[in-house]
Design a protein around this nucleic acid. Structure first.
Lengths: 234, 234, 234, 234
DNA sequence: TATGAATGAGATTTCATTCAT
DNA sequence: GATGAATGAAATCTCATTCAT
C-alpha cells in the first residue's frame, strides 16, 4: 500500500516512528515490531533499510545533528563577535531540544548509555559541533575578548552542561508543561558566564570617580589594579 | 563454603561486583550470571538478596547517594558562608564521581535513561541533595550574598550541569588518564559562577591601593564604582 | 522448512501435540520444549501462535468443546422427547471422552484444578453445554415427562457426575483396556435415572390385568395406588 | 519457640497449614516457604518431617481418608440393611466434604491431576473405602435387595460420581454460600437411585387397595404385574 | 532437633534477525 | 522491493532441596 512512496521518504518515515518510540520507551524497551507497526511497514522492511536496531537508533541523531551543525555553519559567519556566536550556538541547541523533545530525550537520555555510540557518525556529528563551540571560545580568548587564563574546555562544559542539565531535568520530570520556554534561561545564564570570563584588561583604562577619605573627588584616574581588586573583579 | 561471611558484607560484595559490571556493559547488557560469578555467589543468591535485577541496580546509587548526602549534612554545618557551602557541595560530588568512576558512570550515563529510576529511593536520595543545594543557593540570595535577581534553579543547573558534563564527557571519551584530576576545574569554575551572581554592593567598601599617575601611592581609599567598573565587576 | 503448511493446520498440529503431552505429564510437568519438539516446530513458534503456555492449554478444550456443543445443537432438534435428548447428550459426551482419552484426561483431571480455567472461553463453552443439559431437564419437568418435584440441578449432577466418574476412574486406573466400551454403561445407567424421575401420574390410568386369588381375571381396572405402591413406584 | 510442642502435634500443624494453602492456591502454586511460614516453622523443618513437597501433599489425604474409613467401619456394622449402609456411606463422605472444604478441594481437584497419586497410601485408603462401597452394593445384589442385573460398578459410579460432581461444581464456582447444605441433596438423590435398582419382586406381595369401576373396594389382592406395570414401576 | 543460608537446575518468555516467496 | 513466518539464543527468575551449625 505504501509502495508508491519513494525510498528516502519511507526511510524518514521509519526514523520518525522510531524516534517517537525510542524516546518514549527507551531504546531497550522499544521493539522493532512496534516501530514497524507505527511506521506502517513490516519488520523485515525496517531491516531492509537499517540493518540492525542499533543502526536505526544511530541513524536518527546523525541526520538531525548534521542538519543542526549545517544550520550553525550557515548562520555563524553572519554573527559578529564571539559572544554573539556563543549565544547563537546555545540558542540553536536549546531551540532544537525544546522543539523536538523526542530528539533531546534520545540524545540526552538514551544515547549516553550506549557504549557504541562513541563510534558512530552521529557522535562524530555531535563532536563536530562541540568542536566548533570550542573553537569559538578559543577564538574569544585569542582575540582578547575572554581572559587569557580562561580554560576553553571548562567554558564549553559550563555552556553545554548547563543547557543539557536544564533539559535532562525537564525530561526526567516527565516534561512538565512550562509557562515560559526553557530558552528564557539563556540570557540570564549567558550573562553570568560571559561576565565571568570577559577580559578585564579594560579596567586599566577605566575612568573612575574616586572619593578620597577626606571627601574630595578626583576624576579621571588610571588604575593599575592591585592584587586585591583583581581578585574582586574576577 | 562462603557461609562464614556475614550477610551485610555479602550484600555489599554483590553490589560492588554489580556496580563494576553495570557501569562497564550497561544495565541491559549485563547479566546476573556475570555479576554473580564476579561476586563468587550463585545467581539464586543474588535474587535472594535483591529480588530483581532492577532492584539490584537501584540499590547501588541508593546506598552511595545516601552516604554522600549524610557526609554533606555532617560537613556543611561547619562551613561558614554560602559560598563555602556551595564549594563543599561541589567538591563532595566531584570527589565522589572521580573516586568512583563506576558510580559516576552508573548515575550519569545509565540511570538517566531509566524510566523507573524516578520512582526509586535512590532517586529520592539524589533529589534530596539537589534540594539541599537549592536551599543553599536560596539562602545566599536571601542573606544578600547573591544578587536578588538570581534564579536559584538556573544557578543549580549551572553548578550541577557543569560538573556532570565534565564527567559525562570524560566517560564518553573512555575515561582517558588525566594529568590533573577533574576536581582542579572546581575553583576556576566556581570563581566564574560566583562572580556572576555575587551581590556587588560590597565593592563599595573595598579598600584599594591606587597608584596615581605621578607615582604616589595612596592607600585605603573607598571607591564608589562608576557605572563602567560596575559593569566590569559584574 | 515447514513453511508450506498453512497457519490453521499448524495451529491444530501444535494443539494436538500439546494435548498429548499435557494429558500424559500434566500441565505443570509438561514443557513447551517438549511440545514444540513433538510438533516439529520451535519453542518460539509455539509462543507466536499461542502467546503463553496457559493460553495454549486453554485453547484445546475451547476448540473441542465448541465443536462438541455445535454437534449437539445440530443433532438435538431432530430428536423427539426429552429422554431421547438426554440420551443424545450423554452419548455425545461419552463418545468424546472415550474417543479422545487425552481430551477427557485434560478436562476431567487437569483443568479442574486450574483456578484460572473458570475464566476462560473454554470453560464458558463447557458451561454452555451444561446449561443446555439443564434446560433439557427443565423442559422434561415442565412438559410433565419428569416429576414436578425433581430437582433439575440434582439430575444434572447425577447425569454428568456419573459419566465423569466412570471416566475419571478409568483414567486413574491407567486406562486399562476394556472389553466393552464405557458407553455400554449408558443405557443401564439412564434407565435407572429416568425411571426414578419419570412422572408416575400415568399409573393412575394404567390398565392392569389383575389376577384375583380365586383365579378370575378382571380387566380394565383403574387403580388408585395405596401409599405402599406409591412408595414402591417412586 | 515452638520447640516444646511434641513431634506429632507439630506434624499435624504443618499438614494443616499445608492443606489450607494447597487447597487455596493449588499444589503447584503453593510453595514450601509459604507453608512453613504459615506453620511457623522453617522450610528445613518441613523437609525434616515430610521429605518432599509431594510427600507432604500425599500425607494429608492419607490421614484423613484413613480416619474416615475407620469411622465407616465402626459405624456400618450397626446399620441394618444395605440401603441404610449406602446412605451412611454417602452421608459420611458428604459430611466430610462439606465440613472440610479444604480437604474436598484437595481430593477432588488437586490430587486427580497427580500421576503419582495412584501409587500412594492415600490413594490406597481411598480405594479401600471405594471397595467397601462396592462390597455393600454387591451384598445388596446378592441378598436380593437390588436387582440381579444391576452392575455394581455402575451403581458405585452413580453414587460417588454424583456426590463428587456436586462438590466439584461447588468448588469450581468458588464455594458460594448456600442456604441449605449440599447434604440435603442426599435423600432425593438416593431415592432415585435406589428406586431404580431395587429388586421389584416385592411388588408381587404388595397389598393394594383396588377400587373397581363400580366403586367397590377390594382389599388384599396379590398382584402379578403385567409387563406394563413392570415398566411403570421400574 | 531446627534452621538460616545457599544454590542447582530449569522453564518460560522475548525479540532481533533471517529467508523464501 | 516488501513481507509473513519462523526461530536461535539467551536471560530472568523461581523453588525445591541440601547442609553446616
Amino acid at each position: 500500500m505504501t509502495n508508491r512512496i519513494n525510498k528516502k521518504e519511507r526511510k524518514k518515515h521509519i526514523m520518525n516512528a522510531a524516534l517517537g518510540i525510542f524516546s518514549e520507551k527507551g531504546f531497550q524497551n522499544a521493539t522493532i515490531s512496534e516501530i514497524s507497526k507505527a511506521a506502517g511497514v513490516s519488520d523485515a522492511t525496517v531491516y531492509e533499510y537499517f540493518g540492525t536496531k542499533e543502526k536505526l537508533l544511530f541513524s536518527i541523531p546523525e541526520q538531525i545533528s548534521d542538519e543542526n551543525t549545517e544550520d550553525l555553519q550557515r548562520v555563524l559567519p553572519y554573527i559578529k563577535g564571539v559572544e554573539g556566536k556563543l549565544r547563537a550556538f546555545l540558542i540553536m541547541f536549546m531551540r532544537l531540544y525544546e522543539t523536538n523533545p523526542h530528539y533531546s530525550n534520545l540524545v540526552l537520555l538514551q544515547l549516553m548509555s550506549s557504549r557504541e555510540f562513541r563510534n558512530t557518525a552521529a557522535h562524530a556529528a555531535i563532536r563536530k559541533s562541540a568542536h566548533m563551540l570550542l573553537d569559538c571560545i578559543k577564538q574569544g580568548i585569542d582575540e582578547g575578548t575572554f581572559r587569557k587564563d580562561a580554560d576553553p574546555y571548562l567554558i564549553r562544559s559550563m555552556l553545554m552542561g548547563t543547557v543539557e542539565h536544564l533539559f535532562i531535568h525537564w525530561h526526567m520530570q516527565g516534561m512538565p508543561k512550562r509557562e515560559n520556554p526553557i530558552q528564557d534561561y539563556l540570557d540570564p545564564f549567558l550573562e553570568i558566564v560571559l561576565d565571568g570570563i570577559r577580559a578585564k584588561t579594560r579596567t586599566n583604562t577605566i575612568t573612575l570617580n574616586v572619593k578620597m577619605e577626606d571627601g574630595e573627588v578626583v576624576k579621571s584616574i588610571f588604575i593599575e589594579p592591585s592584587p586585591l581588586i583583581k581578585e574582586a573583579a574576577e
